[in-house]
């Protein structure tokens, strides 16, 4: 899968939210590289900054959030240096996004077909008729039954899974190079989840689009991803091949996450949770942000922030245990 051909490189990204309570350091000094054509999973607990990171890629961090520093290099271009007008051309056409909750991601006042053509017409100078033609094709691609009738359907006439297919078709309408899926299955029934994941996997294979999945579901990660980055409190703590990560997790936090997954093979084993809670992001603990919850914490962890260490085979980890 990995040809060494980068599509997205994030360097030293910092996103802060300036709230009344203080500056929330949602993403701090984050580094990440995503290769062309792969399925990349970004995992972590709620509030660890994974969604904010991907919104920063689209430069859509909601206020009072601000991208403080860093570089986001997409296809050789630093997105953070582009004027807003150029950035808008990239959104939807080169990088697009599937959202968590399909029930609210569609405007209730317009038909599914209209909302698909809207994106096409915003970026391409084509006739309305050919935009509708393209929408029909897309509906077939995302396997919506009776696509012709569904083009005219309003969101309230569609089921959750169907709506997610429509959202996916909108995201794919301009053949983006990078598709970001922000917990695309969290709001759906389990059976529908599997269908949507399968659809995303098919589309990824068929069109070679680079897929970034934001999720907290390790099952989805194991099922879908080629490579995984684990985030904790605004930073990446471990990056590895999916088999490597599940077979040989290095960071104590990753180990904890994997222990918290119920297993079918081992009986009568209690699920282990990671003690403690996500740290206060306004005044994060010094040194390694995970040390207050870490069973291996050493003195150095309280003082120094661990650097990313390459353990070989592209397995990166930020932990003092390995330095």
């Amino acid at each position: 899968m990995r040809g060494g051909d980068e599509i997205l490189r994030i360097e030293g990204l910092c996103v802060y939210f300036y709230t009344y309570a203080g500056v929330v350091r949602a993403v701090e000094d984050l580094n990440l590289t995503i290769y062309r054509g792969e399925t990349f999973a970004l995992v972590g607990e709620t509030g660890c900054g994974k969604s904010v990171t991907m919104r920063a890629v689209l430069r859509l961090v909601p206020p009072p959030g601000r991208i403080v520093k860093g570089r986001i290099i997409f296809d050789g271009v630093d997105l953070l240096k582009l004027p807003e007008k150029e950035m808008r051309k990239i959104r939807g056409s080169k990088i697009s996004m599937v959202f968590q909750d399909p029930n609210t991601a569609l405007d209730p006042l317009y038909t599914a077909g209209y909302q698909t053509t809207e994106t096409i017409l915003a970026h391409r100078k084509v006739s309305k008729k050919s935009a509708w033609q393209r929408a029909l094709e897309l509906f077939k691609v995302v396997e919506i039954p009776e696509p012709k009738r569904r083009l005219r359907a309003y969101p309230h006439e569609l089921s959750g899974g169907m709506k997610q297919r429509v959202v996916t078709s909108i995201a794919l309408s301009l053949n983006p190079k990078l598709l970001i899926a922000d917990e695309p299955t969290t709001a759906l029934d389990v059976t529908i989840q599997a269908q949507i994941l399968e659809l995303l996997r098919d589309l990824q294979r068929k069109y070679g689009v680079t897929l970034v999945m934001i999720t907290h579901n390790m099952g989805v990660v194991a099922d879908m991803a080629d490579r995984v980055a684990v985030m904790y409190a605004g930073s990446v703590v471990e990056v590895a091949d999916v088999y490597e990560l599940f077979g040989n997790p290095l960071h104590p936090y990753t180990k904890g996450l994997l222990r918290a997954i119920p297993s079918l093979t081992s009986r009568n084993e209690r699920l282990q949770s990671i003690p403690g809670t996500v740290p206060n992001m306004i005044r994060p603990p010094p040194g390694c942000k995970f040390h207050p919850r870490c069973e291996y914490a050493m003195d150095v962890c309280k003082r120094e922030r661990p650097r990313m260490i390459d353990m070989g085979k592209g397995h990166l980890v930020a932990c003092h245990l390995y330095s």
Binding site: L58, L60, P62, R88, K89, I90, R91, G92, S93, S96, M97, F99, Q100, D101, T104, A105, L106, D107, L109, Y110, E118, T119, A122, H123, V167, I170, A171
Partner: peptide
């Protein structure tokens, strides 16, 4: 605050169009 507004932004729809149509 609706997700569909953010979705429209993420798809590169212009502010004017979002205000007028959504």
């Amino acid at each position: 605050e609706n997700l569909f507004i953010e979705a429209a932004k993420a798809m590169g729809i212009s502010d004017f169009w979002i205000i007028a149509r959504h």
